[in-house]
């Protein structure tokens, strides 16, 4: 594995590491709110993966410089890819939407069960099921 390859990919790898940290929090923690935090971290890291894809070394943000109607100025500047940005803007919004619904559910669960810990909820549910 050449250094060149490493340099051109380390960004992805760190991002993958971050994704996995979030994913791990999500699936290994029993607290319902902590899980949602994990989901947030997971998703935010996926966003980084996308944005990494859109980056061009030496590029600038895709806000066209000079005359808005194009022309010569635009030719000299390298712009980073705007499409991943658009996608991630959408994804961020979707993420916060999911988070708010998840939190609302967590609040209701706390009210109904008196706990936010998955283990305890499972125990309560198992008792109910056994009494059926």
């Amino acid at each position: 594995m050449s250094l060149d390859f490493f340099v051109s990919h380390y960004n992805y790898w760190v991002v993958i590491f971050l994704m996995m940290v979030g994913f791990y929090i999500l699936i290994s923690r029993g607290n319902l709110i902590k899980k949602i935090i994990g989901l947030n971290v997971f998703q935010t890291s996926v966003f980084m993966l996308y944005i990494s894809m859109g980056k061009i070394t030496g590029g600038t943000p895709p806000i066209l410089i000079g005359d808005a109607h194009g022309g010569e100025a635009a030719g000299h500047v390298v712009y980073s890819n705007p499409l991943p940005h658009v996608l991630i803007l959408t994804a961020i919004v979707v993420g916060i939407a999911t988070t708010s619904v998840g939190l609302a559910l967590a609040v209701r669960i706390k009210e109904a069960y008196g706990t936010l810990e998955e283990d305890e909820i499972n125990r309560i549910e198992a008792q109910v099921e056994a009494s059926e």
Binding site: L39, V46, M53, G102, A106, I109, Y113
Partner: peptide, 29 residues
Amino acid sequence: RRALTAAYRYLIMGSVGATFIVIGIGLLY
């Protein structure tokens, strides 16, 4: 009340699914 935990579980698994799909789409892109 178990409807709440069912919905929560679905939310977690569904979001993981959706995130995986997003990753897949990103890699295709």
